[in-house]
Nucleic acid binder design. Structure first.
Length: 178
DNA sequence: ACCCCGATCGTA
DNA sequence: ACGATCGGGGTT
């Protein structure tokens, strides 16, 4: 409609996509495109971290400076440092003051024929660091998501690397793309 | 001011 | 299956 939002089209995932129950968003993100500074990949693996009753969530014990963006509006990036050396990219979900996010764990780069399997590898390849924390991914020309495949087969498993909350099957892995 | 440990990775 | 690695979050 206007050239001020030239990068935005009907396929761009908007605020209402992310302001949904986190498990649903995590599942729906499988098969969608993540765009970051000109690199495009298909999301292949996600995890949901949701609310005050999820002991694996950074926000389980309430609001802190680190997890602040999880309490903010949906569609923002939450990037944190893990193990002193890796970064993890999440996308905030649900409503304000309800802390939740989806961890992006796998990305298939069709052009480069690379499967980034693991959140740390993914951020290392894309050069995503804490500088990219708290970015609005809606109407963002360098960092946004677009719809690709609407229905993707996936399996649900326990989340990786956590001690509590293993009973929740909130890790979602799609069939492989090529 | 500081201690402890983790939403990992790479190699066995 | 497991050890290396270390920045900084959360608590003192």
């Amino acid at each position: 409609m206007t050239n001020q939002v030239y990068f935005y089209d009907q396929h761009t995932l908007a605020h209402d996509f992310f302001e949904q129950p986190t498990v649903r968003v995590a599942q729906s993100l499988l098969g969608q495109y993540l765009h970051y500074k000109g690199i495009v990949g298909i999301i292949t693996e996600t995890e949901a971290y949701c609310g005050f009753d999820d002991p694996a969530s950074h926000a389980y014990r309430g609001r802190t400076p680190r997890n602040e963006v999880m309490f903010g509006p949906a569609g923002y990036s939450y990037v944190y440092l893990i193990y002193g050396m890796y970064h993890c990219l999440n996308i905030v979900t649900e409503g304000v003051d309800f802390p939740a996010a989806v961890l992006i764990r796998g990305l298939f780069l069709r052009d480069e024929k690379i499967h980034l399997d693991g959140p740390g590898k993914l951020c290392r390849y894309l050069n995503i660091t804490r500088q990219e924390n708290n970015q609005n991914l809606i109407n963002n020309p360098h960092f946004y998501l677009t719809r690709h495949i609407t229905e993707v087969e996936f399996q649900a498993t326990p989340r990786i690397g956590i001690k509590q909350g293993r009973e929740k099957l909130w890790r979602f892995v799609s069939k492989s793309f090529n």
